[in-house]
Design a protein around this nucleic acid. Structure first.
Length: 729
RNA sequence: GGGCGAGUAGCUCAACUGGAUAGAGCAUCAGCCUUCUAAGCUGAGGGUUCCGGGUUCGAGUCCCGGCUCGCCUACCA
């Protein structure tokens, strides 16, 4: 509702400016006044115009307001306009009309989405190295990514979700070395041990192969640093040889790597499924290598001159890409093949700062492979993966890349826009890929390539000590310490989820003592997940989360359970009142239609004797710009003691505005905030107005409708945050 | 050295991208359960928005100069 009203007002003001002053303003700044009493929408546009029009802002504002009230500009849904302060224009909504709008918004929203699909988007998130258990840092990535996917879908985009699997990297090699060289198992033994270990550990209440590898990975990393220099060198060589065998494929070591990484990957998918996070496709690095994606990309990169062969300096013998300082620098591709930077003397020199893409030994770097992968994402590579079914979700399948896939498969890639959910430390390599695309002439694709960047999750020193890690004096002084898979330093995702559940379960058992155990465990799970997802989403992206169990295990205040609790309270009202949201909306519609006829014969603002809500509209109308109240619906919405009710409807009507802001700014936290504020305003309303004991039947209907609209919006928002709305708690 | 990000209440964070009196949650203190669930509500205290300049009707937000902190900056992958 509010989004549409803002757009409508903006358009009208533009028309007024054009007509009165012959001014074209691209977009009228629209905001929310600091206080509801000032109105619902405000614009400071008069300030901007003061200079060009050589008039006082207040005078301009008054002229605009006068024009907005007059015939050709009068706007549906607005009750009046006022000038306030030094020149703000404040608009008041027709509250009764707004309420009718909000109540019918769900169907209107669905229709508008169906009529205007918005394109094919690809979101990559999670992307955990398949060599150890997922930790809290990965949780932030996956939860942010999954929530953003939900937001995009709600906004009308077709979205494919990808989880990139680096199954041939050094991290996987390290675990393979751990099995084969540290534990000295034969490949055959690994083949029997890995699945057995998984079953054994999970049967015994442990978490399985991912947990086992967590420790083994940390041990192996330490093992490289132990012993004499010769031993160390030998171990490093084993590591490198193992890596090369894995990259190459078609050998026993690669088979072992595949076995381990696939087993760990399955565990990751199971962990994420606990959080309602699902994927459509898992592209793996092994296929990017074996299907020679790089070769195709290399040709394009050479032809467009993005890559050049360095003949001087430290990068001699490499294929490199020069780095542009500013991404805004235009027409990089028009300079043709660069021969190295030219300095002030005009002397050709090696560009030492250039990014190496192909090493002098002929191997390609990670960025190179990433460029190839992203050409594929946009459908520009001319090659495709093979596809195999991999993981079954309740209502769809997740596919994985394969050298030889199944004959029938869905098509992935070829997106018009992509989002990569990757932490901010990867900003540089991401920028390199974008720069390469731009350099190749794919400017449109480069413009629709978004690095959805976020800051890491770190541990507070206190938290690290709680977990039993030894913390150095130096680290104790820091606000937070970076987690490290290599050191085995961090909080595992499944552990955190389990801990959350263990924390709420007693509470649920106490409050829902009458419910069967299966119901109670279900509720505990919903609350735990709600707490976790909300915790990861309430922070804006570029704020470092200094993880602390105290905050993460909290169920009070600005948390998921607080919002869930509001939902449960509303559901209880409907249960006790033996009615439903649908029935109440129908009654509200009736109420709204009745008064049109009644209002003609009724004196302004007085429709129902005995309600305390009737306040003459002139009372808060200094400028006389406000239209007279017309209905008893409006009567319920006016007056000091009903401001909280109107605030709730208004907040409910913000949804589409918030959704657009989230998508435009790639910022799910805005929706998290919105949901919390709505719940908070409801709690306020809940304590001030007792619904079921309300004696005036019409007012009772209206209060019920207010609860119903809150419920609808809370559930809708929580769903986009990936948080379930419990029936009881 | 260069690049990116951050610095706001005791703590953790917001502030609709330049707008009106800088807001929440924790924590502290004082109240509210015979009502639709107290996972809640009401109230109080708590601020030189790191420092110094500048831009303008208007700056936590923009520009310049400092200070502090974090991350990135390998022909490893």
């Amino acid at each position: 509702m509010l989004l549409e009203m803002q757009q409508r007002l903006g358009e009208r003001i533009r028309a007024v400016l054009k007509e009165k002053y012959d001014l074209e303003i691209a977009s009228i700044p629209l905001e929310t006044p600091p206080d509801l009493r000032l109105g619902e929408i405000a614009t400071p546009v008069a300030f901007e115009l003061a200079r060009t029009l050589r008039k006082a802002p207040r005078a301009i504002a008054q002229e605009i307001v006068a024009a907005l009230g007059s015939a050709p500009h009068a706007i549906d849904g607005f009750a009046g306009f006022e000038v306030a302060g030094a020149g703000y224009i404040n608009a008041r909504l027709d509250r009764a009309a707004a309420v009718r709008d909000v109540a019918g918004e769900l169907t209107a929203f669905a229709k508008s989405l169906a009529s205007s699909p918005r394109g094919h988007v690809l979101v990559e998130h999670t992307s955990i190295n398949p060599n150890k258990a997922a930790h809290i840092g990965h949780l932030r990535n996956a939860i942010l990514g999954d929530t953003f996917v939900r937001l995009l879908r709600a906004a009308g985009y077709r979205v494919d979700v990808q989880n990139y699997i680096d199954n041939t990297g050094v991290q996987v090699a390290d675990v393979v070395v751990g099995f084969l060289d540290l534990l000295k198992l034969s490949p055959d033994e690994v083949r029997t041990v890995v699945p057995a270990t998984d079953r054994l550990l999970r049967g015994g209440g442990q978490k399985g192969i991912d947990y086992y590898c967590w420790d083994l990975y940390a041990r192996t990393s330490q093992w490289y640093e132990l012993g004499s220099d010769e031993e160390k060198a030998a171990r490093k060589k084993v590591r490198l040889d193992t890596l090369h065998l894995i990259e190459q494929g078609g050998n026993e070591t690669a088979e072992v790597a595949e076995l381990i990484s696939t087993a760990v990957l399955r565990r990751h998918l199971e962990t994420m499924q606990r959080l309602s996070i699902e994927y459509d496709f898992l592209p793996r690095e092994s296929e990017i290598l074996h299907l020679h994606f790089w070769d195709a990309a290399f040709e394009q990169l050479k032809q467009t001159g993005v890559l050049y062969f360095e003949t001087e300096g430290k990068n001699k013998g490499c294929w490199v890409m020069s780095r542009t300082g500013s991404p805004a620098e235009p027409a990089q591709n028009q300079t043709g093949p660069a021969g190295g930077a030219e300095d002030d003397d005009g002397r050709k020199d090696a560009d030492e700062d250039a990014k190496v893409i192909v090493r002098s030994n002929g191997t390609v770097t990670y960025v190179g492979k990433d460029i190839a992968y992203h050409l594929w994402k946009f459908g520009l590579l001319g090659r495709d993966f093979g596809y195999k079914r991999f993981f079954q979700y309740p209502d769809h399948e997740c596919w994985i890349s394969a050298e030889q896939g199944e004959a029938e498969h869905p098509h992935f890639g070829g997106a018009t826009a992509i989002y990569n959910v990757i932490d901010s430390r990867q900003a540089d390599p991401q920028a390199n890929v974008i720069q390469a695309l731009r350099g190749m002439g794919y400017t449109d694709q480069a413009d629709h390539y978004t690095h959805f960047s976020y800051e890491m999750v770190a541990l507070t020193p206190r938290c690290a000590e709680e977990l039993g890690y030894s913390v150095t004096e130096e680290d104790k002084k820091k606000p937070y310490i970076e987690v490290s898979g290599r050191k085995g330093f961090g909080v595992k995702a499944d552990d955190l989820i389990d801990k959350l559940i263990a924390e709420v379960q007693p509470l649920v058992n106490e409050k829902q003592a009458a419910s069967p155990e299966s119901v109670r465990t279900g509720i505990a799970r919903q609350i735990a997940i709600g707490a976790l997802r909300y915790f990861m989403l309430k922070y804006t992206r570029n704020s470092v989360i200094a993880f602390d169990f105290k905050d993460a295990l909290s169920f009070e205040g600005e948390t998921g359970p607080y919002i869930q609790y509001a939902v449960v309270r509303i559901r209880n009202i409907f249960r006790k009142g033996a009615t439903s949201a649908e029935a109440v909306f129908a009654e509200l519609a009736e109420l709204a239609s009745q008064q049109v006829s009644e209002s003609a014969s009724q004196p302004t603002g007085v429709l129902y004797q005995g309600t305390t809500s009737v306040v003459p509209s002139e009372k808060r109308n200094d400028d006389g710009a406000l239209a007279p109240e017309q209905s008893n619906l409006a009567a319920f919405l006016s007056g000091e003691e009903n401001e909280d009710i109107w605030a709730l409807w208004l907040r409910a009507g913000r949804f589409s505005l918030v959704l657009e802001q989230c998508v435009a700014a790639s910022e799910p936290a805005y929706l998290a905030k919105h949901a919390f504020q709505l719940a908070q305003e409801f709690a306020n309303f809940y304590h001030r107005h007792h619904i079921l004991t309300e004696e005036d039947p019409r007012r009772k209907t209206f209060l019920l409708a207010t609860a119903a609209i809150t419920l609808r919006e809370l559930v809708r928002s929580l769903e986009l945050l990936g948080i379930e709305s419990p029936e009881a708690m």
